[in-house]
Design a protein around this nucleic acid. Structure first.
Lengths: 354, 354
DNA sequence: TACCGCATAGAAAGCGCTTGCTACGGCTGT
DNA sequence: ACAGCCGTAGCAAGCGCTTTCTATGCGGTA
C-alpha cells in the first residue's frame, strides 16, 4: 500500500532507525549512508507518516492560528504574516527541515468555537498556537480559556497572543502583543476635537470585547480631557464589526442626535457603512459630517474621500507573533509588548461647517 | 503526565477498548457503562491523543483548505464558508462526534508552497483537501499537481476544487466547482458596449492563471462579437491582483491610449486602484471614464460611485465545497459544476461623454 | 433442564515512527 | 601492541490508540 519507513530502509539497506535519523537530521550519519537513504526516499516517493511520527516523538509540526473572521482582512493580514514566518524555510524553496504546518482556524467570534478549536489543536499536540484579535470579556469564558491554555502549555504548546491583551492570571502565554487601541482612539478623537467638533457620535463594536472597550475608553478619555464628556450613551451605538451594522447604527445616530458633526466608527469596515449612511441621508463627507475609522485596512485609502483612521501595523505584528511562536525571537520583557497605533489624517475628516 | 485512555479506563473500571468505543460511538456499549466512562472522561479532563488515534485508525480528522491569499476577502469568504460546513456540528455547540479540524493554508499564490502544503497534508493523512482559486497554467506544475493529488486520493483523501477548473487528466478529484468567469466577463463587457463604449482598457490579472485567462477571453469574445476587436494588446496590461497594480496599470493605460472611455479590471481590488488612478488624473467616474470590477466583494458597493462588477457567489460556493469535502452532498454529474456569475450594474459605469 | 444466540466487555496485536542503549570497527595515545 | 574512544549503525521498546477475535453471562426456546 503506502510506503513506510521500513520500505525505505530495506531499499537503502539500512535499519529504519537510520532512515529516521537521516530524515530528522538530529544524529550523525555518514554522508555516504545519508545519500543512499535520500535516494531511496526519492525513488519510492516516501512521505513521512505524520501521526506516527507525532505519536512517537510526542510533538507535532502543527501550528494553529485562531482568528475571529477569516473574511475580514484585519485578520487575514495578521494570519498571512504569521503563517509566512511559520510555514517552513523561506518561500517553500526546499526541504529545509523545520517544515511546520501553519493553519488558520476561523472561530467566527464564537467563544465555543474558540474553545473547540483549542481542544482540537490540543488533540493534535500542536507545537504552537497564535490567538489573534480581541478577547471576550465574559468571566466564565475567560476562566475556561485560562484553564485550556494552561493545559496546552503543559503539553508543550507555545502560546502567543497577537492583538489581544494578556490574560490576567496565566503565565501559560509565551508572549502577548497588544495594540494600543486606547491610545489610538484617543488621538483620533483629539484630532476631531482639534478640528472643532464638539458633538461626536460613536459607532462601537460588539459589547464585551476588549477591543471595543479599549477603543471606546480612548475616545471618552479624549472627550473628558476636552471637557466634552456628557451623555455619551446617547451618541454611542453598539453593533458587530461589519458594514451593515455601521450603516444602520449611523442612521440611528443621525436620527437621534441631529447635531452630531462627526462619526467615529469601531473600525474601517464599519466606517464604510457609516459613510454610506451619511450619504444616503443626503449629507456630504466631510463638509457636513466627518467620518473616521480604525485599522487602516488597505481599502481605506481608496474610500472617497479617503478615510481618516488609525493605522495598526497588522502585518508586522502578525509576523512577529509568528516568530515568537516559533521561538525565533525572544519574547519582550514581561512577555508583553504594546504595539503603537498611528493616526492617519485623511480626507474624511474636516472642520465642522459652522 | 497527560491523561491517557488507560487512565480513563482505570477510573471507569473498564478496559481501554471500551473507552475507545464509547468515544467513537461505533460499537454497542451498555448505557450504564457509557455513562460511567463519560463521567471519567469529564473528571479527568481527558483529551484524545490525535496522532495516536490517527495512527491506529489510519485516518485523521484534518481537512485542509488551500487559498492563494488569505488577506484577500475573495478567498476569506470561500474559506470561511467551507470551514463552517466542515468544522463539526452546528456552531460548535457540543461534542457531536464529527469534529473535524478545518484549517486554511495560505499558498501566497506560489506553486511551490502549494505543493509543500499538499505534502504536509498528505503527511497528516488529511481526510479532505479543498483547493480554491484559479490554477497556474504552467504544464510542469500541473503535472506535479496531478501526481500529488493522485497520491493523496490514493491515501483516501477527498479532494474538491472550488472556483478552479477541473484538472484535465485526473479523476482523483471528487468534484470541481468552477466559476463562469468567461461568461461573467463577457456580459460585463457587453454591458459596456451597450452603453456606447468602443475603446475599452483591460487591466488583467497575472499571466498563466486560469482565472486571468478566462476573464480576458470573455472580454475579448464580447469585443469580437461587437466587431470591436482590434489591437487589444495595446489596451491590455497585466499585473497581480492587487490595488497598486490596478493603480499603476491604469495610469499606464491612460497614458498609452487617451481615447479609452472605460477600464475593466481583473477584480474589485484592482478596480479600486484603477478608480484612484482615474481620479488622480483629474478624470471623473463615470462621466469621463467608466470603471468595472469583478467578484463583487463586500466593499465594492461602498465605493464611490458604487462599482459595477460581476457577482460571484463565493459564500455559497465555499459552503458547497465544504459539504462535498465532507461527503455531505453528492457530487454533480461528471464531478463538475459551473457556477453562474451575475452582472451587477452600478454607478461606476455609464455612457461615455460624447 | 439443556442448548443456542445475542449483547456486551476484554485481551492483545499491531499502526509507523523515534530514541535510549548496545555493538562494532578503526584510530589514537602511550 | 593494547586499551580506550569516537563515530556510526542496529536493536528493540515503546508512544496511545483502534479493532479483531474471543470470552462471558443472560434470556428464551425446545
Amino acid at each position: 500500500m503506502t510506503v513506510t519507513l521500513a520500505d525505505v530502509a530495506a531499499r537503502a539497506r539500512v535499519s529504519p532507525a537510520t532512515v529516521s535519523r537521516v530524515l530528522n537530521g538530529n544524529y550523525p550519519v555518514a554522508s555516504s549512508t545519508r545519500e543512499r537513504v535520500l535516494r531511496a526516499v526519492d525513488e519510492l516517493d516516501y512521505v513521512l507518516n505524520g501521526p506516527a511520527s507525532s505519536l512517537a516523538a510526542a510533538t507535532s509540526d502543527l501550528v494553529g492560528i485562531l482568528v475571529n473572521d477569516i473574511a475580514d482582512p484585519f485578520f487575514g493580514i495578521m494570519a498571512g504574516a504569521a503563517q509566512s514566518e511559520i510555514g517552513g524555510p523561506g518561500d517553500g524553496s526546499g526541504r529545509g527541515g523545520g517544515e511546520k504546518l501553519a493553519v488558520v482556524c476561523n472561530t467566527g467570534g464564537s467563544p465555543e468555537r474558540e474553545l473547540t478549536y483549542l481542544t482540537l489543536l490540543q488533540r493534535q499536540r500542536a507545537a504552537a498556537v497564535v490567538l489573534t484579535g480581541g478577547a471576550l470579556e465574559d468571566p466564565a469564558h475567560q476562566a475556561a480559556m485560562a484553564v485550556k491554555l494552561a493545559r496546552l502549555a503543559d503539553a508543550g504548546t507555545r502560546i502567543v497572543f497577537c492583538g489581544r491583551p494578556p490574560l490576567p492570571d496565566t503565565d501559560a502565554v509565551v508572549a502577548a502583543l497588544a495594540f494600543d487601541n486606547r491610545g489610538g482612539a484617543r488621538r483620533l478623537t483629539e484630532h476631531l476635537i482639534a478640528l472643532g467638533h464638539r458633538r461626536i457620535g460613536y459607532v462601537a463594536g460588539p459589547l464585551e470585547r476588549t477591543t471595543t472597550r479599549h477603543r471606546l475608553e480612548g475616545h471618552r478619555e479624549a472627550m473628558k480631557a476636552a471637557g466634552l464628556y456628557g451623555d455619551e450613551e446617547s451618541v454611542t451605538v453598539h453593533g458587530p464589526y461589519d458594514r451593515s451594522s455601521g450603516y444602520d447604527a449611523t442612521l440611528e445616530l443621525l436620527r437621534r442626535e441631529p447635531e452630531v458633526t462627526a462619526v467615529v466608527a469601531a473600525n474601517d469596515t464599519v466606517a464604510l457603512g457609516a459613510c454610506a449612511a451619511v450619504r444616503d441621508r443626503g449629507l456630504r463627507i466631510p463638509q457636513d459630517i466627518s467620518v473616521a475609522g480604525f485599522d487602516d485596512l488597505p481599502f481605506s485609502v481608496d474610500a472617497v474621500p479617503a478615510l481618516t483612521t488609525v493605522r495598526l501595523p497588522l502585518f508586522e505584528a502578525g509576523a512577529r507573533a509568528g516568530r515568537l511562536a516559533m521561538g525565533k525571537e525572544t519574547p519582550p520583557p514581561g512577555g508583553m509588548a504594546t504595539i503603537a497605533a498611528e493616526l492617519m489624517e485623511r480626507g474624511s475628516t474636516a472642520a465642522p461647517a459652522r
